[in-house]
Design a protein around this nucleic acid. Sequence first.
DNA 1: CCTATCATGTAATCCGTTACATGATTAT
DNA 2: ATAATCATGTAACGGATTACATGATAGG
Lengths: 177, 177
Amino acid sequence: MSNEIRLTPTSYIVLGLLEAAGESTPYDLKQMVAIGLGNFWSLQHAQLYKEPERLTAAGLLSERREESGRRRKHYRVTGKGRAALREWLSEPTAELTELRDLALLKVFFGADPEAMAAAQLPAHEAKLAEYEELRQSAADVADEIPEGPRVSLRAGIEAERIWVGFWSRIRDRGEPA
Amino acid sequence: MSNEIRLTPTSYIVLGLLEAAGESTPYDLKQMVAIGLGNFWSLQHAQLYKEPERLTAAGLLSERREESGRRRKHYRVTGKGRAALREWLSEPTAELTELRDLALLKVFFGADPEAMAAAQLPAHEAKLAEYEELRQSAADVADEIPEGPRVSLRAGIEAERIWVGFWSRIRDRGEPA
DNA sequence: CCTATCATGTAATCCGTTACATGATTAT
DNA sequence: ATAATCATGTAACGGATTACATGATAGG
Protein backbone atom coordinates (compact mmCIF):
# COMPACT_ATOMS: atom_id res chain seq x y z
CA MET A 1 0.00 0.00 0.00
CA SER A 2 0.86 3.63 -0.37
CA ASN A 3 2.51 3.01 -3.72
CA GLU A 4 5.65 4.94 -4.11
CA ILE A 5 5.42 7.75 -6.57
CA ARG A 6 7.91 10.04 -8.18
CA LEU A 7 8.11 13.34 -6.42
CA THR A 8 8.36 16.38 -8.63
CA PRO A 9 9.01 19.99 -7.67
CA THR A 10 5.27 20.39 -7.59
CA SER A 11 5.10 17.69 -4.95
CA TYR A 12 7.59 19.46 -2.76
CA ILE A 13 5.83 22.75 -3.20
CA VAL A 14 2.66 21.21 -1.86
CA LEU A 15 4.52 19.52 0.95
CA GLY A 16 6.44 22.66 1.78
CA LEU A 17 3.41 24.87 1.85
CA LEU A 18 1.40 22.47 3.95
CA GLU A 19 4.28 22.02 6.34
CA ALA A 20 4.54 25.76 6.80
CA ALA A 21 0.86 26.53 7.00
CA GLY A 22 -0.62 23.45 8.58
CA GLU A 23 -3.86 21.93 7.43
CA SER A 24 -5.10 23.65 4.29
CA THR A 25 -7.39 23.30 1.33
CA PRO A 26 -6.20 23.49 -2.26
CA TYR A 27 -7.60 26.94 -2.45
CA ASP A 28 -5.55 27.99 0.53
CA LEU A 29 -2.51 26.67 -1.27
CA LYS A 30 -3.41 28.65 -4.31
CA GLN A 31 -3.51 31.80 -2.22
CA MET A 32 -0.15 31.07 -0.68
CA VAL A 33 1.41 30.52 -4.07
CA ALA A 34 -0.07 33.76 -5.30
CA ILE A 35 1.47 35.97 -2.66
CA GLY A 36 5.05 34.87 -3.02
CA LEU A 37 6.27 31.66 -4.52
CA GLY A 38 4.29 32.12 -7.71
CA ASN A 39 6.64 34.89 -8.69
CA PHE A 40 9.35 32.49 -9.54
CA TRP A 41 7.59 29.17 -9.77
CA SER A 42 3.96 29.28 -10.78
CA LEU A 43 1.44 26.46 -10.90
CA GLN A 44 -1.91 25.85 -12.44
CA HIS A 45 -4.67 25.73 -9.86
CA ALA A 46 -5.73 22.33 -11.10
CA GLN A 47 -2.40 20.97 -9.99
CA LEU A 48 -3.07 22.11 -6.48
CA TYR A 49 -6.15 19.92 -6.49
CA LYS A 50 -4.65 16.91 -8.16
CA GLU A 51 -1.22 16.81 -6.59
CA PRO A 52 -2.53 16.46 -3.02
CA GLU A 53 -4.51 13.46 -4.17
CA ARG A 54 -1.37 11.82 -5.47
CA LEU A 55 0.50 12.61 -2.30
CA THR A 56 -2.33 11.31 -0.20
CA ALA A 57 -2.39 8.06 -2.13
CA ALA A 58 1.30 7.74 -1.44
CA GLY A 59 0.84 8.33 2.25
CA LEU A 60 2.60 11.68 2.37
CA LEU A 61 -0.54 13.60 3.19
CA SER A 62 -3.72 12.88 5.03
CA GLU A 63 -7.06 14.07 3.81
CA ARG A 64 -10.12 15.19 5.69
CA ARG A 65 -13.28 16.01 3.83
CA GLU A 66 -15.97 18.28 5.15
CA GLU A 67 -19.19 16.42 5.85
CA SER A 68 -21.59 19.22 5.14
CA GLY A 69 -21.85 22.10 2.72
CA ARG A 70 -19.02 22.36 0.26
CA ARG A 71 -17.37 19.16 1.30
CA ARG A 72 -14.01 20.77 0.88
CA LYS A 73 -10.89 18.71 1.23
CA HIS A 74 -8.37 19.60 3.88
CA TYR A 75 -4.87 18.22 3.73
CA ARG A 76 -2.08 17.91 6.20
CA VAL A 77 1.42 16.49 6.06
CA THR A 78 2.01 13.07 7.56
CA GLY A 79 5.19 11.94 9.23
CA LYS A 80 6.22 10.24 6.06
CA GLY A 81 5.57 13.39 4.09
CA ARG A 82 7.56 15.47 6.53
CA ALA A 83 10.47 13.08 6.25
CA ALA A 84 10.41 13.26 2.46
CA LEU A 85 10.40 17.04 2.57
CA ARG A 86 13.24 17.17 5.05
CA GLU A 87 15.35 14.87 2.99
CA TRP A 88 14.78 16.90 -0.13
CA LEU A 89 15.65 20.12 1.66
CA SER A 90 18.81 18.65 3.07
CA GLU A 91 20.24 17.75 -0.33
CA PRO A 92 21.86 20.76 -1.95
CA THR A 93 21.50 20.63 -5.70
CA ALA A 94 24.10 21.56 -8.29
CA GLU A 95 21.49 21.61 -10.98
CA LEU A 96 21.43 24.75 -13.08
CA THR A 97 18.27 26.31 -14.31
CA GLU A 98 17.95 27.00 -17.95
CA LEU A 99 16.87 30.41 -19.05
CA ARG A 100 14.01 29.18 -21.21
CA ASP A 101 13.26 32.74 -22.06
CA LEU A 102 10.78 32.99 -24.89
CA ALA A 103 11.99 36.40 -25.99
CA LEU A 104 15.55 35.17 -26.14
CA LEU A 105 14.46 32.12 -28.09
CA LYS A 106 12.87 34.31 -30.71
CA VAL A 107 15.94 36.48 -30.93
CA PHE A 108 18.07 33.39 -31.24
CA PHE A 109 16.12 32.42 -34.34
CA GLY A 110 16.29 35.81 -35.90
CA ALA A 111 13.67 38.07 -34.33
CA ASP A 112 14.61 41.72 -34.23
CA PRO A 113 16.35 42.37 -30.91
CA GLU A 114 15.32 45.99 -30.69
CA ALA A 115 11.67 45.21 -31.24
CA MET A 116 11.93 42.54 -28.61
CA ALA A 117 13.58 44.95 -26.23
CA ALA A 118 10.70 47.35 -26.70
CA ALA A 119 8.30 44.66 -25.52
CA GLN A 120 10.43 43.16 -22.80
CA LEU A 121 11.75 46.25 -21.11
CA PRO A 122 8.49 47.60 -19.73
CA ALA A 123 7.49 44.15 -18.55
CA HIS A 124 10.74 43.59 -16.71
CA GLU A 125 10.72 47.08 -15.28
CA ALA A 126 7.24 46.55 -13.93
CA LYS A 127 8.23 43.27 -12.36
CA LEU A 128 11.30 44.80 -10.80
CA ALA A 129 9.26 47.65 -9.37
CA GLU A 130 6.79 45.16 -7.93
CA TYR A 131 9.59 43.25 -6.25
CA GLU A 132 11.20 46.32 -4.77
CA GLU A 133 7.91 47.46 -3.42
CA LEU A 134 7.46 44.05 -1.88
CA ARG A 135 10.83 44.36 -0.27
CA GLN A 136 10.01 47.80 1.05
CA SER A 137 6.77 46.75 2.61
CA ALA A 138 8.48 43.71 4.06
CA ALA A 139 11.31 45.74 5.58
CA ASP A 140 9.27 46.71 8.62
CA VAL A 141 8.44 43.19 9.57
CA ALA A 142 11.70 41.76 8.34
CA ASP A 143 12.22 39.75 11.47
CA GLU A 144 9.01 37.85 11.03
CA ILE A 145 9.72 36.88 7.47
CA PRO A 146 11.66 33.66 7.21
CA GLU A 147 15.03 33.66 5.55
CA GLY A 148 14.01 31.52 2.57
CA PRO A 149 11.46 33.89 1.07
CA ARG A 150 13.69 36.84 1.81
CA VAL A 151 16.63 35.31 -0.03
CA SER A 152 14.40 34.29 -2.91
CA LEU A 153 13.07 37.79 -3.25
CA ARG A 154 16.58 39.11 -3.37
CA ALA A 155 17.38 36.66 -6.16
CA GLY A 156 14.32 37.77 -8.06
CA ILE A 157 15.35 41.38 -7.79
CA GLU A 158 18.85 40.73 -8.95
CA ALA A 159 17.63 38.69 -11.87
CA GLU A 160 15.20 41.37 -12.95
CA ARG A 161 17.92 44.01 -12.75
CA ILE A 162 19.96 42.00 -15.18
CA TRP A 163 17.19 41.77 -17.65
CA VAL A 164 16.36 45.41 -17.44
CA GLY A 165 20.01 46.17 -18.10
CA PHE A 166 20.27 43.64 -20.87
CA TRP A 167 17.29 44.83 -22.85
CA SER A 168 18.08 48.46 -22.16
CA ARG A 169 21.46 48.15 -23.75
CA ILE A 170 19.94 46.50 -26.77
CA ARG A 171 17.39 49.21 -27.13
CA ASP A 172 19.76 52.11 -26.57
CA ARG A 173 22.65 51.32 -28.81
CA GLY A 174 21.95 48.02 -30.43
CA GLU A 175 24.46 45.45 -29.46
CA PRO A 176 27.52 46.84 -27.71
CA ALA A 177 30.95 45.25 -27.81
CA MET B 1 -6.33 17.93 -44.39
CA SER B 2 -3.30 18.99 -42.45
CA ASN B 3 -5.15 19.37 -39.19
CA GLU B 4 -4.13 22.44 -37.35
CA ILE B 5 -2.10 21.79 -34.26
CA ARG B 6 -0.97 23.92 -31.39
CA LEU B 7 2.55 25.13 -31.89
CA THR B 8 4.76 25.08 -28.83
CA PRO B 9 8.24 26.45 -28.35
CA THR B 10 9.46 23.01 -29.27
CA SER B 11 7.69 23.34 -32.60
CA TYR B 12 9.38 26.61 -33.35
CA ILE B 13 12.74 25.24 -32.35
CA VAL B 14 12.37 22.48 -34.89
CA LEU B 15 11.14 24.90 -37.51
CA GLY B 16 13.88 27.39 -36.75
CA LEU B 17 16.65 24.85 -36.88
CA LEU B 18 15.40 23.32 -40.09
CA GLU B 19 14.99 26.71 -41.66
CA ALA B 20 18.56 27.60 -40.80
CA ALA B 21 20.16 24.29 -41.69
CA GLY B 22 18.04 23.00 -44.52
CA GLU B 23 17.01 19.38 -44.80
CA SER B 24 18.05 17.47 -41.71
CA THR B 25 17.42 14.35 -39.72
CA PRO B 26 16.37 14.35 -36.09
CA TYR B 27 19.86 13.42 -35.16
CA ASP B 28 21.20 16.43 -36.99
CA LEU B 29 18.78 18.55 -35.01
CA LYS B 30 20.02 16.99 -31.82
CA GLN B 31 23.56 17.99 -32.73
CA MET B 32 22.54 21.53 -33.49
CA VAL B 33 20.78 21.86 -30.20
CA ALA B 34 23.80 20.51 -28.40
CA ILE B 35 26.24 23.06 -29.70
CA GLY B 36 24.32 26.17 -28.85
CA LEU B 37 20.64 26.43 -28.18
CA GLY B 38 20.65 23.63 -25.63
CA ASN B 39 22.47 25.89 -23.25
CA PHE B 40 19.38 27.84 -22.55
CA TRP B 41 16.59 25.69 -23.85
CA SER B 42 17.22 21.97 -23.85
CA LEU B 43 15.10 19.20 -25.29
CA GLN B 44 14.85 15.47 -24.95
CA HIS B 45 16.05 13.68 -28.04
CA ALA B 46 12.77 11.83 -28.28
CA GLN B 47 11.07 15.13 -28.88
CA LEU B 48 13.23 15.76 -31.88
CA TYR B 49 11.86 12.57 -33.39
CA LYS B 50 8.24 13.07 -32.47
CA GLU B 51 7.82 16.77 -33.04
CA PRO B 52 8.77 16.63 -36.73
CA GLU B 53 6.08 14.01 -37.18
CA ARG B 54 3.50 16.32 -35.71
CA LEU B 55 4.70 19.18 -37.85
CA THR B 56 4.66 17.02 -40.93
CA ALA B 57 1.11 15.93 -40.24
CA ALA B 58 0.18 19.57 -40.01
CA GLY B 59 1.84 20.40 -43.30
CA LEU B 60 4.61 22.53 -41.87
CA LEU B 61 7.35 20.09 -42.80
CA SER B 62 7.87 17.59 -45.55
CA GLU B 63 9.40 14.24 -44.92
CA ARG B 64 11.65 12.10 -47.07
CA ARG B 65 12.61 8.65 -45.94
CA GLU B 66 15.68 6.82 -47.12
CA GLU B 67 14.86 3.78 -49.19
CA SER B 68 17.81 1.66 -48.25
CA GLY B 69 19.89 1.01 -45.13
CA ARG B 70 18.81 2.93 -42.08
CA ARG B 71 15.75 4.39 -43.69
CA ARG B 72 16.38 7.62 -41.87
CA LYS B 73 13.87 10.41 -42.04
CA HIS B 74 14.88 13.74 -43.51
CA TYR B 75 12.77 16.80 -42.92
CA ARG B 76 12.53 20.18 -44.53
CA VAL B 77 10.38 23.21 -43.95
CA THR B 78 7.45 23.78 -46.28
CA GLY B 79 6.16 27.15 -47.34
CA LYS B 80 3.46 26.89 -44.74
CA GLY B 81 6.03 26.07 -42.10
CA ARG B 82 8.18 28.99 -43.12
CA ALA B 83 5.22 31.32 -42.88
CA ALA B 84 4.39 30.08 -39.39
CA LEU B 85 7.95 30.61 -38.25
CA ARG B 86 8.11 34.09 -39.73
CA GLU B 87 4.93 35.11 -38.06
CA TRP B 88 6.10 33.85 -34.70
CA LEU B 89 9.40 35.66 -35.05
CA SER B 90 7.71 38.88 -35.99
CA GLU B 91 5.62 39.02 -32.82
CA PRO B 92 7.64 40.43 -29.95
CA THR B 93 6.59 38.91 -26.67
CA ALA B 94 6.20 40.62 -23.34
CA GLU B 95 6.10 37.31 -21.54
CA LEU B 96 8.48 37.01 -18.64
CA THR B 97 10.31 33.86 -17.82
CA GLU B 98 10.07 32.50 -14.37
CA LEU B 99 13.22 31.60 -12.57
CA ARG B 100 12.15 28.06 -11.75
CA ASP B 101 15.44 27.55 -10.05
CA LEU B 102 15.48 24.35 -8.07
CA ALA B 103 18.14 25.57 -5.66
CA LEU B 104 16.15 28.69 -4.95
CA LEU B 105 13.02 26.64 -4.45
CA LYS B 106 14.73 24.60 -1.79
CA VAL B 107 16.04 27.68 -0.07
CA PHE B 108 12.58 29.18 -0.20
CA PHE B 109 11.30 26.23 1.78
CA GLY B 110 14.04 26.33 4.32
CA ALA B 111 17.13 24.67 2.90
CA ASP B 112 20.38 26.08 4.24
CA PRO B 113 21.46 28.88 1.87
CA GLU B 114 25.16 28.47 2.56
CA ALA B 115 25.11 24.76 1.84
CA MET B 116 23.23 25.49 -1.33
CA ALA B 117 25.75 28.13 -2.29
CA ALA B 118 28.52 25.60 -1.87
CA ALA B 119 26.85 23.37 -4.43
CA GLN B 120 25.68 26.05 -6.81
CA LEU B 121 28.72 28.25 -7.02
CA PRO B 122 31.09 25.80 -8.71
CA ALA B 123 28.39 24.79 -11.13
CA HIS B 124 27.61 28.36 -12.13
CA GLU B 125 31.27 29.27 -12.33
CA ALA B 126 31.91 26.35 -14.64
CA LYS B 127 29.03 27.34 -16.85
CA LEU B 128 30.19 30.93 -16.97
CA ALA B 129 33.70 29.86 -17.90
CA GLU B 130 32.31 27.68 -20.65
CA TYR B 131 30.33 30.59 -22.06
CA GLU B 132 33.24 32.97 -21.99
CA GLU B 133 35.41 30.46 -23.74
CA LEU B 134 32.72 30.07 -26.33
CA ARG B 135 32.67 33.80 -26.84
CA GLN B 136 36.42 33.94 -27.15
CA SER B 137 36.60 31.25 -29.75
CA ALA B 138 33.75 32.88 -31.60
CA ALA B 139 35.38 36.28 -31.59
CA ASP B 140 37.56 35.47 -34.58
CA VAL B 141 34.72 34.50 -36.80
CA ALA B 142 32.31 36.98 -35.28
CA ASP B 143 31.14 38.20 -38.64
CA GLU B 144 29.95 34.78 -39.65
CA ILE B 145 27.95 34.20 -36.54
CA PRO B 146 24.42 35.50 -36.80
CA GLU B 147 23.25 38.14 -34.41
CA GLY B 148 20.70 35.94 -32.65
CA PRO B 149 23.06 33.39 -31.19
CA ARG B 150 25.54 36.11 -30.33
CA VAL B 151 22.95 38.09 -28.38
CA SER B 152 21.74 34.94 -26.67
CA LEU B 153 25.23 34.06 -25.60
CA ARG B 154 25.63 37.48 -24.13
CA ALA B 155 22.44 37.01 -22.17
CA GLY B 156 23.66 33.69 -20.89
CA ILE B 157 26.88 35.23 -19.71
CA GLU B 158 25.17 38.06 -17.93
CA ALA B 159 22.76 35.70 -16.26
CA GLU B 160 25.54 33.44 -15.05
CA ARG B 161 27.43 36.39 -13.68
CA ILE B 162 24.46 37.27 -11.58
CA TRP B 163 24.20 33.85 -10.12
CA VAL B 164 27.87 33.63 -9.37
CA GLY B 165 27.59 36.94 -7.57
CA PHE B 166 24.42 35.97 -5.79
CA TRP B 167 25.68 32.69 -4.40
CA SER B 168 29.10 34.14 -3.66
CA ARG B 169 27.62 36.76 -1.41
CA ILE B 170 25.62 34.14 0.40
CA ARG B 171 28.65 31.99 0.92
CA ASP B 172 30.95 34.82 1.97
CA ARG B 173 28.92 36.68 4.52
CA GLY B 174 25.60 35.08 4.72
CA GLU B 175 22.89 37.41 3.64
CA PRO B 176 23.97 41.02 3.28
CA ALA B 177 21.66 43.92 3.80
C1' DC C 1 36.12 -10.49 -33.91
C1' DC C 2 33.98 -8.56 -30.08
C1' DT C 3 32.30 -5.02 -27.39
C1' DA C 4 31.45 -0.38 -26.31
C1' DT C 5 29.60 3.65 -27.88
C1' DC C 6 27.04 6.32 -31.09
C1' DA C 7 22.92 6.72 -33.82
C1' DT C 8 18.13 6.09 -34.50
C1' DG C 9 13.73 5.13 -33.39
C1' DT C 10 9.25 3.58 -30.83
C1' DA C 11 6.30 2.79 -26.81
C1' DA C 12 4.44 3.75 -22.43
C1' DT C 13 3.75 6.66 -18.78
C1' DC C 14 2.61 10.69 -16.49
C1' DC C 15 2.59 15.38 -15.32
C1' DG C 16 0.75 19.69 -16.57
C1' DT C 17 -2.41 22.41 -19.16
C1' DT C 18 -6.86 23.40 -20.87
C1' DA C 19 -11.50 23.07 -20.71
C1' DC C 20 -15.61 22.36 -18.43
C1' DA C 21 -18.88 22.82 -14.62
C1' DT C 22 -21.17 24.14 -10.59
C1' DG C 23 -21.61 26.10 -5.85
C1' DA C 24 -21.06 30.33 -3.00
C1' DT C 25 -20.65 35.33 -2.35
C1' DT C 26 -20.68 40.02 -3.42
C1' DA C 27 -22.20 43.99 -5.84
C1' DT C 28 -25.69 46.62 -8.34
C1' DA D 1 -33.09 39.53 -7.80
C1' DT D 2 -29.68 39.01 -10.93
C1' DA D 3 -25.35 39.36 -12.72
C1' DA D 4 -20.73 38.98 -11.90
C1' DT D 5 -16.97 37.21 -9.61
C1' DC D 6 -14.78 34.09 -6.47
C1' DA D 7 -14.23 29.37 -4.92
C1' DT D 8 -13.93 24.56 -5.77
C1' DG D 9 -13.55 20.71 -8.25
C1' DT D 10 -13.29 17.07 -12.24
C1' DA D 11 -12.33 15.44 -16.90
C1' DA D 12 -9.90 15.15 -21.09
C1' DC D 13 -6.07 15.94 -23.78
C1' DG D 14 -1.44 16.28 -25.13
C1' DG D 15 3.40 17.28 -24.75
C1' DA D 16 7.45 15.85 -22.38
C1' DT D 17 10.11 12.52 -20.01
C1' DT D 18 11.51 7.86 -19.35
C1' DA D 19 12.27 3.48 -20.73
C1' DC D 20 13.06 0.21 -24.09
C1' DA D 21 15.19 -1.61 -28.23
C1' DT D 22 17.95 -2.29 -32.20
C1' DG D 23 21.10 -0.90 -36.04
C1' DA D 24 25.71 0.99 -37.23
C1' DT D 25 30.57 2.16 -36.36
C1' DA D 26 34.91 2.32 -34.28
C1' DG D 27 38.44 0.75 -31.09
C1' DG D 28 40.94 -2.88 -28.90
